[in-house]
Design a protein around this nucleic acid. Structure first.
Lengths: 190, 190
DNA sequence: CAAGCAAACTAACAGTTGTTAGTTTTAATA
DNA sequence: TATTAAAACTAACAACTGTTAGTTTGCTTG
């Protein structure tokens, strides 16, 4: 339990700038200026610009993959699993809207960790796909095109970070309910 | 009707690279290398890197806004209008998957044209929102949260470019039908 | 008060960036 | 064949990039 206050500040500020302009367009001097220090001082806390990106992205990607594994092995209906996935995305997008931007838009700038990131993403998507397929087999979900349902739901969930900061009046629980209606009731058999 | 073959080639190659790495991470030397020429030679055809981005993004944004105006003033039901919007997105994503990536991810690097771009986008979204609201008032669409329906459909449509290149076996018409089912039947009253 | 250390600083580096100027090649036209 | 214009080239620029080295500052603890 080492306290790393300053490093976390750097990651937070960097993520905010990455969301606004993208990883490649943000310089170390930009990050430093936002913290009111000089660029060289950043290197007392982090080892490279790459490391900043890695820490932002990999931690979120791991959280998604781990939680998805929990949901997948839960003993509930497929519809219930989908609802838990929606809640997971809303939850993470609320607490880390900046990091979500990097996860979505800057993952290709990972270098040593690119392969690992892609494994995490594939694992997540495979579980998601399996849940939909099991829902179709159990007649909980309409017999539509699995890939298009997956893609459609995932696109919306992945874009939540763009939208949540603007609508703070809408509270998390209400957002989950509305998304369940639009995304899940739409593909449900009833 | 001046033929500008070489300029179009540059825009096409640049858009492909922008999709892969993002505008800021692509250098003029990258674009030149992909065309097997030197960076300085690009300036016989274009005036700046900025201009390349501008031409890629603004032309698509204008197409969306113009077509949306046509759809909005069409004399058909709201559901029919939504189906036309889906078809519009599928159509543009098919013919210009690279440009769509810049439109979605690199618009913030527009400089003089940023304001104009935002006007186009707002006009598009306002019309979209009005169509949904009219559908709700006419009892064609369920009485849900307008913003969430708008956001959900739009997120999926805006992400099509990511997905279409991978699924070439699925033809455009079939994709439109499947998306109509998932995106529109889900919010429809029946 | 002295020692030690985290975290800031200044100065500089080697490489990369978009872009310009001036020159040569290429290919179509007169 | 001679002319011309488009489109390539080489060379260079000033600014900016991530990062390193060495130094100073300021707080905490013995």
């Amino acid at each position: 339990m080492k306290k790393e206050g300053r490093k976390d500040e750097i990651l937070k500020v960097a993520a905010r700038l990455f969301k606004k302009k993208g990883y490649a367009a943000v310089t170390m001097r930009d990050i430093a200026k936002a913290l009111d220090i000089k660029a060289a001082s950043l290197y007392n806390h982090i080892s490279s610009k790459q490391e900043i990106l890695k820490m932002i992205i990999i931690s979120i990607a791991e959280e998604f993959t781990e939680e998805m594994n929990v949901i997948y092995t839960n003993d509930v209906s497929s519809i219930e699993k989908l609802k838990k996935i929606v809640a997971l995305h809303v939850n993470i997008a609320y607490k880390n809207s900046y990091g979500m931007a990097s996860l979505n838009n800057d993952w290709m700038h990972l270098e040593e960790q690119l392969e690992y990131y892609l494994e995490l993403r594939n694992s997540y998507e495979d579980n998601f796909r399996s849940i939909i397929k099991e829902g179709i087999n159990a007649n909980e979900i309409i017999h539509g095109n699995t890939e298009i349902m997956l893609f459609s739901i995932l696109s919306t969930l992945r874009s939540l970070y763009l939208w949540i900061p603007k609508k703070e009046e809408l509270k998390s629980e209400e957002l989950v309910n509305n998304l369940n209606q639009v995304l899940i009731d739409g593909i449900r058999n009833h």
